[in-house]
Design a protein around this nucleic acid. Sequence first.
DNA 1: TGCCATAGTTCCAAAACGAAACTTACCTTG
DNA 2: CAAGGTAAGTTTCGTTTTGGAACTATGGCA
Lengths: 112, 112
Amino acid sequence: MKWSDLSDNWCPVARTLSIVGDRWTLLILRDCFLGMSRFEQFIESSGMTRHILADRLKRLVESGILERKAYSTSPKRYDYVLTDKGQELAPALLTLRDWGKKHMPVRRATSA
Amino acid sequence: MKWSDLSDNWCPVARTLSIVGDRWTLLILRDCFLGMSRFEQFIESSGMTRHILADRLKRLVESGILERKAYSTSPKRYDYVLTDKGQELAPALLTLRDWGKKHMPVRRATSA
DNA sequence: TGCCATAGTTCCAAAACGAAACTTACCTTG
DNA sequence: CAAGGTAAGTTTCGTTTTGGAACTATGGCA
């Protein structure tokens, strides 16, 4: 079965994961909750590659979790900001954070 | 950056996602919370392929989220059951479920 | 002996990914 | 005005991961 088929699954967990349940997407959203909104910020913060980020941002905008707002028209530049729908993923990020704090202690520090 | 490097990231969300933040893993855990514990049950419920499931189960056991308990010795057979550490992911699954219920309505029904 | 069930494992082609270079469009500085 | 810098992607290419299906192993049952 293809992962994308999950968007119409009977289970709401599966439907949610069809959007945010891949590598990187929740990390982008974490950065959004930390106040980031621009392509280069996400790149620097997460360490993901540029074309993967571009792909994920497109999907997030298509699914109504992020909104693409122009902040410059001369060279076209955009902010990616959480919609209300996106904001409501905060509890999910918080529970994942709490679990990580408790069950995933840091062994060595990393810069990224 | 490799995904596996996230396990030592400064951010607890990233560290959590280094274990459960890929496709399928959270779906397996959902099934565990629904009471499933066997290979064929996970296969039938989630629709993932057999060798991906085998890989994910191995990782989950290695990371202490599931425990592999023999329920038959003659042909060696195992139950995969949540550890305490795994049980504590329940809040995360519940928030993802709630978000899905609210923001991901079902378009067409699917069997899986 | 032959068929069924459970739990994997192996093989191959297709899709996704990581790294790095390239592109576009403007701005600044010499 | 040419050179270099910034922001936001896009392209290319080689490696990994995935999906699908077949195959294996072990034992039960008729």
